Simulated assay, not measured.
Amino acid sequence: MQDLAQLESIALDLPQTKRGHERCVALLESAAELFLEHGYDAVSLDDIVNHAGGSKASIYKYFGHKEGLFKSICDYRRDQFFKDIFMPFNPQVSSFRNYLIQTLINFQEHLKQPEKAAFMRLILEQSQRNSEIAQHIHEHGPKKIQLAIAGWLEIAHKNGILHCENPLFSSQFYFGILRDIEWKILMGLPQDESDQENTNYIEYCVDRFLDGHQKP
């Protein structure tokens, strides 16, 4: 469970007590469950309160309104995503090649979880219908992920591990490695490749990525 500080960027009014923290997280998790089961439009604030306990006043206090609650769910899950997938690069533990490979493998394993894929589909659906949500998701999701990897690429460049003049462009290129796998999962297509085949593919692509970032 996230501590109080980790909710600071998610809730409008940061809960100061353990009980308030638990109520805030329960609303996030219950709302996400109901949205996935019934769809965003079919779920009311009353439904969420009945499922999670508490009151609508708590939703207004912590999130402002239903749309704010949905954005907070996305932010909450994004933080969990970062926690599960991204680890700081430690050259004493792993090579940069292995770091890049393992990050993509972690990302792929995350996508393969049915509940995670279903929530991504929900995000795409709501983004098509609400430009403000779309902008929020992009700024706090994909863009933040790209910037995180760009930061490590910049450090690797400064340390002479690779040559990377534009870390953000290279980060976007790097995540393109998973684009085909990601879209197959989101479209519900069968995964014909085995885990080993996908790992072989990721390793091959990372090697080609690093080949393109050799010192001139």
Rank of each mutant, 00 (worst) to 15 (best):
W152L: 13
S194Q: 02
I155E: 14
Y40V: 00
F175Y: 15
G176W: 00
G64Q: 11
L28D: 06
I145P: 05
H157Y: 10
M1C: 08
A5R: 13
C164V: 10
E197V: 02
N198V: 09
D192A: 12
S95V: 07
H213D: 00
E154F: 04
A148P: 00
Q80S: 14
L168E: 12
K144F: 07
K158S: 05
F70R: 07
E37L: 12
E139F: 12
E125T: 09
L124C: 06
G68P: 05
I149E: 00
L104D: 01
D41K: 12
Y62D: 11
G176K: 02
I202C: 00
A118Y: 00
Q92W: 12
I59S: 06
K215M: 09
A57P: 02
N159R: 14
G20C: 01
E22M: 07
G212Q: 09
N98D: 15
K18S: 11
L178E: 05
F86L: 11
W152K: 12
A31M: 03
W183C: 08
F35T: 03
H163V: 04
S55E: 13
L7F: 05
G141Y: 13
T17D: 11
H65L: 03
L178I: 11
A150D: 04
E203G: 00
S94T: 10
G64L: 09
F86H: 10
K184Y: 02
A134H: 13
R19P: 00
Y60E: 10
L14R: 14
H21E: 15
L111C: 02
G176E: 03
F81G: 01
P15I: 04
Y62S: 11
S171Y: 04
I59V: 15
L14P: 13
L36R: 07
E33W: 11
F86T: 07
D79E: 14
N198A: 00
E115L: 10
G54L: 10
L122Q: 12
H136T: 06
S55Y: 04
E182A: 13
L104M: 06
P91I: 03
Q16Y: 07
I133K: 07
S170E: 14
E132I: 12
Y201H: 05
I105A: 04
C205P: 00
Y60H: 12
I181M: 07
N90G: 05
G64P: 08
E125G: 01
S95E: 02
Y99D: 09
D211Y: 08
E125W: 08
C74M: 15
E182F: 06
V25N: 01
F173A: 12
F96T: 00
T17C: 01
P142L: 11
T103R: 08
L28F: 06
F89P: 02
E132G: 11
E154R: 14
V25W: 03
E33H: 14
F107K: 08
P88S: 13
G39K: 04
G151P: 05
L14E: 09
Y62F: 15
L36I: 01
I73P: 06
L7H: 03
E132K: 15
P167I: 01
Y204G: 00
P15V: 12
Y99I: 03
E165C: 06
F107H: 12
E132N: 15
S171D: 03
Y62C: 08
E22Q: 12
I145T: 14
